[in-house]
Design a protein around this nucleic acid. Structure first.
Lengths: 224, 224
DNA sequence: TTCAGAATGAGAATCTTATGCATGGGCCTG
DNA sequence: CAGGCCCATGCATAAGATTCTCATTCTGAA
């Protein structure tokens, strides 16, 4: 979930914007002056800053320069009032990533937010977590309690399948079909073996599974 | 010096734009249809793509989807004719990084180009380093522990591709597609062979790779 | 002729799955 | 409700299959 900080001279004005962002699944924070903005960026570490011009006693360009001087390197979208090309250019050159002229089309703003995050945030959708386990699909790495755990191709596929079908009782047949692509089901305990391996790798106590539960007479059920 | 590819259905129209870019210190290339554009992106590896809509027989959105499908991950600015918010949004959502409505303010375009390059180009200089290895793209020279190491064209391209996609698990197919330009995937071990060569040239201990890691059953992952 | 790139194949490393035995839950019977 | 039986599951092991490495050979272009 991405954090977005809105800088606006009167907080109420950013209320509408903030609501919209929350509706879209972002976490929004507010600052009403440059100083608190800088503080909060350091404290909260948002992925994006939206600056609603004009600010109190400081120009947008100065704000950008301060951000740069503070070495925060945070992606920034400016919402400005001026159609004047010169203003836009100055802001873009001093560090802003985008500039939109008010009145803002909310859907366009959203699209631009996403476009910027796509470039600057490392594929958030590709990370999944459960318990102490973190799966990074882009790197194809699984970590448990911060340390990398090696998983074989088969284990990896099975793990992803469990995550996709969390909290559902799955028969061995279903699993064999989806993960292995088998259409007929030999009397095998391959699934058991692999579940066992996943337990050993990811369950704090493999003898008392909390995530990879067995459903006696049926198969398995995975809990996040 | 950054390379920019302009995609425009009639090349002459991009002449003005191209001249302007060259004046500003960019290297500009032109393509007049999507197919050659994709080819050239692979061949030239530009840092930015400017798409001047409309194209011949293909919509902007389709173009973006193709770029995405080809896994090229190239920053894209769209120059469009439509003021319609819906068009902008669609393009931004499908992968475009910015959308400008014609007529274009050249100075604003420039500022936006720079803003995007600032975020996407990792190394403003042409030198990249990892481990004991230093790559000088301007001179096309690779050095390891200070001494020059000869690399063949193929090895060089592969090396750069790894650097651009550091820390991501890459399938052989992806690599063959991006580095070799293959669209169908013969059952070949060409990639392995070349990775092997890179290991021998750049890994302190080729038997225990620290940079060119294999992801069993998938392909390879490069670590800086 | 030379060199880079692509294909090949043998051997090594790694992964998959069958097997056997141990264990434990579920169900029947008394 | 206890005891015992049966079957499902856990789990270690090893054989078998796959995938990877890398030296070598082949091919085509300069």
């Amino acid at each position: 979930m991405h954090k977005i900080l809105i800088l606006n001279r009167n907080e109420s004005a950013s209320d509408f914007l903030g609501k919209m962002l929350e509706r879209e699944g972002f976490l929004q924070f507010v600052a009403s002056n440059p100083e608190t903005a800088l503080e909060r960026i350091r404290a909260i570490q948002p992925q994006l800053l939206i600056v609603d011009l004009p600010l109190e006693g400081i120009s947008g360009v100065e704000m950008c320069l301060q951000l740069r001087a503070a070495n925060l390197n945070i992606p920034t979208i400016i919402l400005g009032e001026s159609q004047d090309e010169m203003d836009k250019i100055l802001l873009l050159e001093t560090g802003a990533d985008d500039y939109l002229v008010k009145p803002i089309g909310t859907r366009e703003l959203l699209a631009r937010i996403r476009a910027i995050l796509r470039r600057t945030v490392r594929n958030p959708g590709l990370r999944i977590r459960f318990g102490d386990v973190e799966i990074d699909r882009e790197r194809r790495i699984v970590a448990c309690k911060g340390g990398e755990v090696k998983v074989t191709p088969c284990e990896y596929k099975l793990l992803l399948f469990f995550l996709q079908n969390a909290d559902r009782a799955l028969t061995r047949d279903t699993i064999l079909n989806s993960v292995w692509g088998y259409t007929d089901y030999p009397n095998t305990r391959t699934v058991d073996t692999h579940v066992n391996k996943l337990r050993n790798k990811f369950e704090p106590d493999p003898a008392a599974p909390r995530h990879f539960l067995t459903v006696h007479g049926v198969g398995y059920r995975f809990l996040m």
